[in-house]
């Protein structure tokens, strides 16, 4: 796909994905040209440790999503614990506290599916380390609507199960280690 058509990068991670993020995020260029959305499985808490940690390692803006907030280029938007996040046609975030999906709220599938509907071929999704099957169905919809799906290679992931599920279901269009993911994302231009 054409990297100058990318409009959004969405990253999903679960167990063991923080290590990957701490390698990938500091290596991304500071003037990252499109918005980034990060959905992580984490314990329900209102603390700001994750946001502060990722901000300290990133050269772009990192903030936890507030409802109705617009997606902004050069910003890493973190999905808050205990809510699903959806993206509206006008490219703002909506929060939703409905049933868990894949035993998870937030669910990676919900974010990927919602983003796919709005951004279609302009979406790049990355699925990192985890011990859950979340993300696979989201990947399916991203592919069907013309977006790009990248699974962290299971052998390079802390916990290979989650990206492995997407690969097994044939919904991962590309399989990359962290260095390749960094190079791919840094090649995105607008």
């Amino acid at each position: 796909m054409e990297k100058d058509k990318v409009e959004l990068v969405a990253i999903g991670g679960s167990a063991g994905s923080l290590e990957a993020l701490l390698e990938i995020l500091p290596a991304l260029k500071p003037d990252f040209p499109v918005p980034l959305v990060l959905v992580l499985h984490r314990k329900s808490t209102t603390d700001t440790i994750l946001t502060n940690l990722l901000q300290s390692r990133s050269s772009f803006r990192v903030r936890e999503i507030e409802e109705k907030e617009p997606l902004r280029p050069g910003t890493l938007h973190i999905v808050p614990p205990d809510y699903h996040v959806l993206i509206e046609e006008d490219r703002t975030f909506s929060l939703d506290d409905s049933e868990k999906v894949n035993y998870s709220r937030p669910s990676i599938d919900v974010v990927f599916q919602s983003a796919a509907k709005v951004y279609q071929s302009g979406l790049v999704c990355v699925l990192l380390s985890g011990a859950n099957a979340d993300g696979t169905e989201g990947f399916r919809q991203v592919q069907e609507l013309g977006g790009t799906t990248i699974a962290q290679s299971p052998e390079s992931a802390e916990v290979g199960y989650m990206p492995g599920q997407a690969i097994a279901a044939n919904t991962a269009g590309k399989i990359m280690n962290n260095k390749e993911i960094i190079a791919y994302l840094n090649a995105i231009t607008r």
Binding site: L86, I87, E88, E89, S94, D96, S98, V110
Partner: peptide, 9 residues
């Protein structure tokens, strides 16, 4: 109502 959520419902 916000469309994304109600659409999903």
């Amino acid at each position: 109502y916000s469309r994304a959520s109600i659409h999903r419902r």
